[in-house]
């Protein structure tokens, strides 16, 4: 019951953010340099034809009316058309988003699986060799730009050692037929299609990009896990647990780690949204058909509708992500349920 109220309250509190995002994306498109009318009218446009395009696009109407049109279109799921692809922006984004989300999730899983145990391990032995090794790895991971690590990985594992598949997208489409799109996640779709060979190929293609992206996320996760665990292990309740003679395992995992979950969760939300934005370079290196590359192309070719749609979708995604993190936090910590 409390849980349900928490969810509802949190959903309601997201509404102002959504409204804000809509206003900002609208104004952003108006504030971008360049005149869209001149752009759409083409290179050989005369002032008259530009004015004509402007009135066609409704850009000569008052800002408030334009905003009303924009909101009306949004309500119909219409984000406009992309000039460069010729498709509706919404369908462009929806076909590309799963690729980016899959890559980001895989990177996050990698970072979690490596970062959390590393942080816990370092926290149980502060000042030891493990602690220093953890710090070194974290520093290296954060210091090298993702595209650099990605290029090194491609050079080493594809070109030199030849154990990784070619860095060209999500699946080798010469040997495998892309499965029918159900979730858009290649790993899940290949499994749903029952095509184990394709699954293996998709998995192989995912390994290098997700590790190069995940190395960057490793740093904040390992660091915050270590800090949160150190705090929890030094806390009064862990001292109580020791005084009650509870086992070391119980103290480390049931007592300390569960209490450390909250800060880790918060960082996880930040890292995820950060990765979603940062994976554009990885997508370039691995020819990954995601939204990052799409957005960059849209900016370069002044594809206003596409940029606007991208910003809107990312903002909504961030809001959704924060919602999920908050709800997970209220599951992890009963105190959160009361003061959302």
């Amino acid at each position: 019951m409390t849980m349900l109220i928490t969810i509802l309250r949190r959903l309601l509190s997201a509404i102002p953010s959504v409204l804000g995002v809509i206003v900002v994306t609208f104004l952003l498109a108006r504030a971008l340099p360049g005149d869209p009318a001149a752009f759409y009218a083409g290179a050989s446009a005369t002032p008259e034809s530009i004015a004509e395009v402007r009135s066609q696009l409704g850009l000569d109407r008052p800002l408030l009316l334009q905003f009303a049109d924009y909101v009306g279109d949004l309500l119909h799921g219409d984000l406009g058309h992309s000039v460069s692809s010729g498709q509706a922006v919404l369908s462009d984004l929806l076909t590309r988003l799963p690729a980016s989300v899959e890559l980001t999730l895989a990177a996050l899983v990698f970072a979690l699986v490596v970062g959390m145990p590393l942080g816990v391990w370092a926290a149980t032995r502060p000042g030891s060799f493990v602690d220093h090794a953890c710090r070194l790895l974290v520093t290296l991971g954060a210091a090298f730009p993702t595209f650099f690590t990605a290029l090194v990985f491609v050079y080493a594992f594809y070109y030199r050692l030849d154990i990784a598949p070619e860095p060209l997208g999500r699946l080798n489409e010469i040997y495998f037929v892309a499965p029918p799109q159900v979730t858009g996640f290649m790993l899940i779709d290949t499994l749903l299609a029952g095509d184990m060979e394709a699954f293996r190929s998709a998995f192989g293609h995912l390994v290098l990009p997700s590790i190069s992206l995940g190395l960057f996320a490793l740093a904040p996760i390992a660091r915050v896990t270590r800090a949160a665990m150190l705090e929890a292990l030094g806390s009064d309740y862990c001292r109580t647990a020791r005084a009650m003679g509870l086992s070391g395992r119980h103290i480390l995992f049931t007592t300390a780690l569960r209490n450390a979950t909250l800060p880790i969760l918060n960082v996880l939300g930040m890292v995820f949204s950060f990765l979603l934005g940062a994976n554009v370079l990885i997508e370039k290196v691995f020819a990954w058909p995601g939204i990052g590359a799409y957005a960059v192309n849209a900016v370069i070719s002044s594809d206003y509708a596409a940029v606007q749609g991208f910003v809107l979708m990312m903002a909504l995604l961030f809001i959704f992500l924060n919602l999920v993190v908050d709800l997970m936090a209220s599951i992890a910590d009963p105190r959160v349920r009361y003061d959302v």
């Binding site: 009064d236 309740y237 109580t240 005084a243 569960r258 910590d333 009963p334």
Partner: peptide
């Protein structure tokens, strides 16, 4: 053993 400030000496989320 029991401690002072019992509120922080108990595991807050259990």
């Amino acid at each position: 053993m029991i401690f002072q400030s019992p509120r922080t000496a108990l595991n807050p989320i259990r």
